[in-house]
Nucleic acid binder design. Structure first.
Length: 741
RNA sequence: GGGCAGUUAGUUCAAUGGUAGAACGUCUGUUUUACACACAGAAGGUUGUAGGUCCGAUUCCUACACUGCCCACCA
C-alpha cells in the first residue's frame, strides 16, 4: 500500500461515502451478525427552507459519532432522517420568491399556491439532507420521512381526533398574536421582542358627568378606539371615588365605565389604564372578569375596521395613531407625551409587527399534558442533559397556557374538522368556557364535527356537503409526533416495536419548549412512553465575538466551505473539539486547522507502521502471538495507556462529553503513541529479539486506534482501513468492524 | 422584572483548596530511517472588580461589573 506523504480529503470523501451507501449498512436490517440490543435516534428534521449551518453540522456529527460507535459495538442502530414541512417558515420563503415575480399567494389561490409549495419541497427538500452527507452523517436513507407524507398526515389527524375525544380540544375566541403580514395567528414562541423607542401618551378621558378627567397612559393611542373601560387598582386612593362612574371615550363618543381590577399596577403611568379587550391579551382577560364588550377595530391585514369610526376606517394602524393623536390635540385631551423604550413583538418569520387581535382559534388544553411531561422529566424517564435545562423545562411547563394549535396558513395539515354549511354557529366564548368547566364537552353552538374522512351525510342538517376547516395545524403539532409517527404509528409496526422509545435526541436549546417537551407529552399520551431516554440540549455556536450566528447579520459560517477548506473529518474534529459541555461555543476556525493536522498525523503514523510491516509475514496481524515475556517497559506502557484511553473514551461518550473524549484520543494518539512509542520503537526494531513484538504492538495500537477514531473521523479512518485490508488484514469495512475489546 | 450560565496566556478553551495547562498564533533551532500539516525548545497569565472564610483561593462564600441565554400580558 502506497500512501502519499499528506492526507488529501478530496481524493477520499466522496468515494468513501459511496462505499458506505453501497454497503447499505446504514439500514439496521442489513447489518451483519446477531444484534439483540438496539440503539435508535431520530434526526431533528431540518426545514425545507434552510441550508446546512454549523448547528446542524455539530448536532448531526454528535449523533453520527454515537451511531457509528454503537454500530461497531454490535447494536442494531437506527438513525432516522427526515424533513419538516415547517408551516409558516416555509410558506414565507415561497411567498418571498413569489414576490420577486410581483405575486402574492392570494393571487394564485390556495390550490395553486400549495402546488408551488410542493414543487419547492421537491426541489429543495433533499438538498439539506444531501449536505449532511458531506459532513459524513450516515442516517438510514431508506427510512427518510417527510411530515406531510400520506401516512404521517394520517397520524396527525388521528392525534387531533384523539385529543378531541378526550375533550381537550376547544374552539375559542381569544386575543392571540396576529401577524398582519402572514395573516395568521402565531404562538407566543414564534414571536421575538425587540426594544424600540416609542412614546408614552397621556390621554385625558372626560368624565361623563363633566366633573373632570381621568388620565390614562398608553403606548398605542390608536387602540383607544376600541376601549371598553378604564381600569384602576381597587386599592388606589386616587381613583376610588371614580370606580363605577363613566367616562366619555373621546373621538368615538361612547360611554365606558371606570372599573377596579387587581391587575392594574398603581405605580405605572398614571395608575389608570385604558382597556382594549380585542387587541391586548391582558385587557382581554380583564374583559372576561368584568363582562366587557370586545370591539375589534383592526382587521386581519392590520387595517382599521369600520368599528374604528369614520375618520380612521381604512387607515393602517400606524397612520391611525397619528390621526388619533392629532384629534386628541385638537380637543386638548393629550396631556403629554414622554419618550419611552419598550419591547415590541415582531413575527419571527417575517419581521412584521405583531398585532394582538381577537380571533377564533383552536386550542389544546395543556393541564393534563403538562402534568404528564413534568412527571416524565422529574422521574428521569427522559433525562435532560445538561441537567440545568430541567429547571427551564419545568418552569415553562408549570406556567403553561393552552396551546393555540390552529394557523391561518395554506401549507400544513388541515384540521379534520367539518362544518355544516347550513347552520352557522353562533359562538359565545364565555358560554363555551363555562360549559367546559362543568365538564360538558358538547358545545352546541358550534356547527362542526371532527372526523378523519369527509362525512357522507351532514349529521347536523342532514342536507349539505360538509366543508373542511381551512385552518391548518401549528407545524409543531405534527413535529411533536415525530419519534413515533415516523415509525408507523398509529399502526403497530415492527419498527415501532423495535426502535421506540429511542435512546437519544440532540437539539438546539431554542426548540426545547417548541419541540422537545411537546414530543415528550405527545409520546406519553399516544404510546405511554416518553420518546427518548436522553434529550441533549447542545451548545449554541456563536461567532468569535460571542454574537449569534445569523444569515441576516452576515455572521454565519458555511460548514460546506469549511469542509472544502479542511476536509470533512477536520471540520467534524473542529466542531467536536470545541464542544466541551459548556452552553456556548465561540467558534474558532483554529480548531479545524488542528483537526487537519491531526488527520495528517494519523495518515503518516500509518505510513510509518506499514513500513515496519514490510519485513514480516502477515502473521503480524495475529495479535495473539505478541509475546508477553518480551515486553519492554515502553511496550507495557503503551498497551496500558491504550487500555486506559479506551475506557476513558467510553466513559465520556456515555456522558455525551464528545469534546473530552476526542481530546483524550487526540492526546493518546499524538503524544503517547506517536511522540513516545513510535520513537522508541525505532530503537526496539533494531534489536532482533524485540523487532517482531514491536511491529506487532505498533500494528495493534494503530489498528485499534483507527477503530476508536472512526466515529469522530470516519472518512480518513475508513480509507486507511481499506489500505490495511489490501495489505492482507482479514476484515470488513471499518464501519461495521467491531469496537476494540 | 424573575431566573440560568460565563468572565483564566494574543485568540479559543481546560484544570485545581497549596506557586495554572492544551490547541492555534508568535519566536529560536532542526530536513534525525512516518509526518516541516513535523520534531526539539522558548516567550507569554498578580485566573473580571471589591470584600470575606482559610495557614493558604484562580478554585468556596457575598456583593458589583460586563457578556450571553431562558422565562414574563406591565399598559
Amino acid at each position: 500500500m502506497k500512501l502519499n506523504t499528506a492526507y488529501n480529503p478530496k481524493d477520499v470523501e466522496e468515494r468513501i461515502y459511496k462505499l458506505w451507501e453501497k454497503s447499505g449498512c446504514f439500514n439496521p436490517d442489513k447489518l451483519p451478525g446477531k444484534r439483540t440490543k438496539k440503539f435508535s435516534v431520530m434526526m431533528a428534521p431540518p426545514n425545507i427552507t434552510g441550508s446546512l449551518h454549523l448547528g446542524h453540522a455539530l448536532e448531526n456529527t454528535m449523533i453520527d459519532i454515537l451511531i457509528r460507535m454503537k454500530r461497531m459495538q454490535g447494536f442494531k442502530t437506527l438513525w432516522l432522517p427526515g424533513i419538516d414541512h415547517a408551516g409558516i417558515a416555509a410558506q414565507n420563503v415561497v411567498e418571498k420568491s413569489l414576490r420577486k415575480e410581483g405575486l402574492r399567494r392570494q393571487d394564485l389561490g390556495r390550490e395553486k399556491f400549495t402546488e408551488k409549495m410542493w414543487a419547492w419541497k421537491e426541489k429543495y427538500g433533499h438538498i439539506i439532507l444531501g449536505q449532511l452527507k458531506k459532513i459524513g452523517a450516515l442516517p438510514d436513507w431508506s427510512r427518510t420521512r417527510f411530515t406531510l407524507d400520506h401516512d404521517y398526515a394520517k397520524a396527525v389527524q388521528e392525534a387531533f381526533i384523539h385529543y378531541h375525544k378526550k375533550g381537550w380540544i376547544y374552539r375559542g375566541e381569544r386575543v392571540i398574536n396576529w401577524c398582519p403580514r402572514c395573516e395568521t395567528g402565531i404562538s407566543d414562541l414564534e414571536i421575538e421582542y425587540r426594544e424600540e423607542k416609542g412614546k408614552l401618551y397621556h390621554i385625558k378621558y372626560p368624565l361623563a358627568d363633566k366633573s373632570g378627567f381621568i388620565t390614562v397612559a398608553t403606548t398605542r393611542p390608536e387602540t383607544m378606539l376600541g376601549d371598553a373601560a378604564v381600569a384602576v387598582n381597587p386599592k388606589d386612593g386616587r381613583y376610588k371615588h371614580l370606580v363605577g362612574k363613566f367616562v366619555a371615550l373621546p373621538i368615538q363618543n361612547r360611554r365606558i365605565p371606570v372599573i377596579a381590577d387587581r391587575g392594574v399596577d398603581m405605580d405605572f403611568g398614571t395608575g389608570a389604564v385604558k382597556v382594549t379587550p380585542a387587541h391586548d391579551v391582558a385587557d382581554f382577560e380583564m374583559s372576561l372578569r368584568h363582562n366587557l364588550p370586545k370591539i375589534k377595530i383592526i382587521d386581519e391585514k392590520g387595517i382599521m375596521a369600520n368599528t374604528a369610526g369614520p375618520i380612521c376606517e381604512g387607515l393602517k394602524a400606524i397612520e391611525c395613531r397619528e390621526k388619533v393623536v392629532a384629534e386628541l390635540q385638537k380637543f386638548e385631551l393629550l396631556e403629554k407625551t414622554e419618550d419611552y423604550v419598550h419591547n415590541v413583538a415582531f413575527c419571527e418569520r417575517c419581521s412584521a409587527k405583531i398585532e394582538p387581535r381577537l380571533s377564533k382559534q383552536w386550542f389544546l388544553k395543556m393541564a393534563k399534558l403538562s402534568e404528564s411531561a413534568i412527571k416524565t422529566i422529574k422521574s428521569k424517564e427522559t433525562a435532560l442533559h445538561p441537567k440545568k435545562w430541567e429547571k427551564m423545562a419545568l418552569n415553562w411547563l408549570k406556567n403553561i397556557r393552552d396551546w393555540n394549535i390552529s394557523r391561518q396558513l395554506w401549507w400544513g395539515h388541515q384540521l379534520p374538522v367539518w362544518f355544516c354549511k347550513n347552520q352557522t354557529g353562533v359562538f359565545n366564548f364565555q358560554f363555551s368556557i363555562s360549559k367546559q368547566k362543568k365538564g360538558k364537552n358538547k358545545i352546541k353552538d358550534d356547527n362542526f364535527i371532527v372526523s378523519l374522512e369527509k362525512p357522507k351525510e351532514c349529521p347536523i342538517c342532514k342536507n349539505c356537503e360538509m366543508e373542511q376547516s381551512v385552518d391548518v395545524l401549528d407545524t409543531w403539532f405534527s413535529s411533536a409526533l415525530w419519534p413515533f409517527a415516523t415509525l408507523g404509528w398509529p399502526q403497530k409496526t415492527a419498527d415501532l416495536k423495535t426502535y421506540y422509545p429511542t435512546d437519544y435526541i440532540a437539539s438546539a436549546r431554542e426548540i426545547l419548549n417548541l419541540w422537545i417537551i411537546r414530543m415528550i407529552f405527545s409520546g406519553k399520551e399516544f404510546t405511554g412512553k416518553s420518546p427518548f431516554k436522553t434529550a441533549h440540549i447542545h451548545a449554541t455556536i456563536l461567532t468569535k465575538e460571542g454574537k449569534r450566528m445569523s444569515k441576516s447579520l452576515g455572521t454565519g459560517i458555511d460548514p460546506l466551505l469549511l469542509i472544502d477548506k479542511y476536509g470533512a473529518d477536520a471540520t467534524r474534529f473542529g466542531l467536536i473539539y470545541q464542544n466541551l459541555g459548556n452552553q456556548d461555543i465561540r467558534f474558532a476556525e483554529d480548531a479545524m486547522i488542528t483537526g487537519k493536522k491531526f488527520c495528517n498525523k494519523i495518515w503518516n503514523a500509518t505510513r510509518f507502521v506499514l513500513l515496519q510491516t514490510e519485513n514480516f509475514q502477515f502473521s503480524i496481524f495475529n495479535f495473539k502471538t505478541i509475546s508477553k515475556l518480551k515486553l519492554s517497559k515502553y511496550d507495557k506502557k503503551i498497551l496500558n495507556d491504550f487500555k486506559k484511553t479506551k475506557k476513558e473514551i467510553e466513559k465520556q461518550l456515555e456522558k455525551y462529553e464528545f469534546g473530552k473524549a476526542l481530546r483524550k484520543l487526540y492526546d493518546f494518539f499524538w503524544h503517547d503513541f506517536c511522540d513516545v512509542y513510535i520513537e522508541k520503537s525505532k530503537q526496539q526494531s533494531a534489536n532482533p529479539k524485540l523487532a517482531k513484538n514491536t511491529a506487532q504492538i505498533l500494528f495493534y495500537i494503530l489498528t485499534n486506534s483507527i477503530k476508536m477514531l472512526h466515529p469522530f473521523l470516519p472518512f480518513i479512518t475508513e480509507e486507511i482501513w481499506g489500505g490495511l485490508k489490501s495489505e492482507g488484514l482479514q476484515t470488513d469495512a471499518l464501519i461495521i468492524e467491531s469496537w476494540p475489546k
